[in-house]
Write a protein that binds this DNA or RNA. Structure first.
Lengths: 258, 258
DNA sequence: TTTTCCGTATTATTATATAATAAAATTGGG
DNA sequence: CCCAATTTTATTATATAATAATACGGAAAA
């Protein structure tokens, strides 16, 4: 009823199947049938049929011993398809590698997806937490340098709405939970032309990011650098890193706003 | 009939939906409905319902202008889930970063999936082709250093079968198409303890890889390094790179053979 | 051993996806 | 710029194909 006319074009089984595929994450590495059913919000019967199908077509590994399911390498094949399809990634990749070499620090590129940023390129030249090395990682935009850099490109209205409504999750003791302080950081980013965080996601990590904007001024991505606060101080990061990030960001022009 | 009893546990709609998700690759970046239907081997009606569903749940982007579909950032979210789930990736990641710093060259880690290798870690410190920088990339095992390193760990029978039946595709003029030469390269790899290629995938690129074996001697992954043949010669690669790769490979012990 | 939990297999029932077709919209050629 | 051709979107009747309930078997725990 409420969904209206499109109902016949919506394939419920597929949606449920995708719920299963998508239920795995950094916390849920592998699951048995019952656990999986519960996590995906499905009854056992449905979970059985769908996992069976996904296993047969190769998207889920099934441990013959424990009968537990986990993501298969096909997950990565999909990622590959995405990376080739994203014009920005193709353009940015060589520049990021260059930048990583020049700075000798970890550089990343992120896109905005709803209220979260998603890292699409990672050039890890230093050790950190595993989550900071892998592609596809999602973080709440408000507390990341990339997110702030991009939000700072919004008009005042959208900026306000983002700051007030988008989620914040505490990652470290120093994550900014006070939304007025987040707003201030974003205003600052708008003035500077780059976003900045310190110890908000990983302790003693400084994040700095410059936005890439499309022709109409809307942010489409960000170029970011993560640096140890133990070896650098913020002033030096502002002076020595920011210009390079901005230079790279400005050198990337996207044909389609996407 | 031929499928037998499991038929009721197989959800066809899900399989078809996954066919659509998986049809995108480096050649097929974005597609209209008809093209998509044909590429996935579905009739137009099915393609319509399934793309509609996948778009609604966020797995496919749909350009409002052209009505063409392309992979969404959700593809990368899945990759993230895989990477967290793979014990090997977690163990290897910091070592790969270290290795990349030490060698100053591009290092990768790959897994075997059927007759193909899949790159699960890439540390790009030098510029190359885009395909050599992104995760999830698949290549025929027989003509890659990682593939040869792993196949060399098979017993004689399996090795023979692989050499005779696994696919080979010509990537450069110098890709080894002669299977007896491939066999020889693999025997050599078995003696050396590492696999080697030159210009077989990218012209003037030397690939060298050491296998990681589980407790029962079966290969589970490979640690690889790609080097410019213009700056290095093979003898030097053998002398200076191989020991480091083997050292790293030996330092990785997998709890579960998977 | 007994009990409990989890995964697997088997049904009848019907909801749900299907395929064919029609309508609308977009593109390209002349 | 208009018409023809192609592609996308919307609408149906129909039966296939997915469903949910239940029963079975095996493994682990008590």
């Amino acid at each position: 009823m409420s969904k209206g006319k499109q109902d016949t074009l919506f394939v419920g089984s597929l949606e449920k199947g995708m719920r299963i595929l998508g239920v795995f994450d950094e916390r849920r590495i592998e699951m048995g049938l019952t656990e999986l059913a519960e996590a995906a919000g499905l009854d056992k019967s449905a979970a059985q049929r769908l996992t069976n199908t996904l296993h047969k077509i190769g998207y889920l590994n099934k441990d013959p011993e424990t009968r537990r399911y986990s993501p298969s390498l096909k997950y990565l094949e999909l990622a590959n398809a995405y990376l080739w399809s994203d014009r920005f990634v193709q353009l940015a990749m060589p520049k990021m590698i260059e930048l990583g070499r020049k700075l000798g620090e970890r550089v990343n590129a992120a896109r905005l997806d709803g209220s979260e940023i998603v890292y699409v390129i990672r050039i890890p030249t230093q050790l950190t937490s595993f989550g900071a090395m892998v592609v596809g990682r999602r973080l709440p935009a408000l507390t990341t340098s990339s997110g702030r850099a991009m939000i700072a490109c919004f008009d005042a209205d959208a900026r306000k709405r983002a700051v007030e409504t988008w989620p914040i999750v505490q990652a470290t003791p120093r994550t900014t939970l006070d939304r007025s302080k987040v707003a201030a950081a974003i205003e600052q980013a708008a003035r500077d032309g780059y976003g900045l965080t310190e110890s908000e996601n990983i302790m003693n990590e400084i994040g700095i990011a410059a936005p890439i904007v499309s022709g109409d001024g809307r942010p489409v991505a960000a170029v970011q650098c993560s640096i140890s606060a133990l070896r650098w101080d913020i002033a030096r990061v502002r002076n020595e890193i920011a210009p390079h990030l901005i230079e790279v960001a400005n050198s990337i022009h996207l044909p389609k706003p996407r």
